[in-house]
């Protein structure tokens, strides 16, 4: 299936779900969906016999620098051999969306990483802790407005 058909299918199932669809984006078309529906959409497209997206290639946090943070899901189907990019945008002051960990276990560590570096909070994640940085680190380094903390446990941080 190509991106158009996938988009149509999601739209029929979740009429409110698709916010934006960009079939002519550079390199790859993508679908932007409503963040609060991401879990249902994930369950739908992973179970649907025509789509069968069983492989989450990558889950990336992004700071779009327009007041929004985002999560980008790169999905692939091992069986059908097709792929799709799904994006969900959340406002920076309340970055929260459901976790897709129950659907794809890959998301477990990827969501922790997005939480660690962007401060995006994934609801219903079984283990929402920082993964790469120390547990008591302040701030979320990959946000575009990140200011590094002055001291970490008495050590000067900016050098």
């Amino acid at each position: 299936m190509n991106a158009n058909e996938i988009q149509e299918k999601i739209k029929t199932r979740f009429p409110e779900g698709v916010v934006e669809f960009k079939p002519d984006a550079v390199a790859e078309p993508y679908i932007v969906v409503r963040p609060e529906l991401i879990r249902e959409i994930a369950e739908f497209i992973s179970a649907d016999p025509e789509m069968k997206f069983d492989y989450l290639m990558s889950l990336s946090g992004v700071d779009f620098n327009d007041g929004n943070l985002g999560v980008v899901y790169h999905l692939y189907s091992m069986e059908k051999r097709h792929r799709i990019v799904i994006k969900a945008k959340v406002p920076k002051d309340n970055p929260e969306l459901p976790s897709v960990e129950p659907v794809w276990k890959t998301a477990n560590w990827h969501e922790r990483e997005a939480f660690d570096l962007f401060g995006i909070n994934f609801k219903d994640h079984p283990d929402m802790r920082r993964i790469l940085l120390p547990d008591d680190w302040e701030g979320y380094p990959l946000r575009k407005d990140y200011k590094v903390q002055e001291y970490y446990r008495g050590m000067k941080v900016p050098y």
């Binding site: 984006a25 550079v26 390199a27 790859e28 993508y30 290639m57 990558s58 990336s60 992004v62 980008v72 790169h74 990019v85």
Partner: peptide, 21 residues
């Protein structure tokens, strides 16, 4: 040009993907 790409390739350890915006 403005845009984004997810390119993956097979390293000895498996799928290495770069997502570049």
């Amino acid at each position: 040009p403005a845009g984004e790409v997810y390119m993956r390739s097979e390293t000895p350890r498996g799928e290495l993907g770069y997502y570049i915006i």
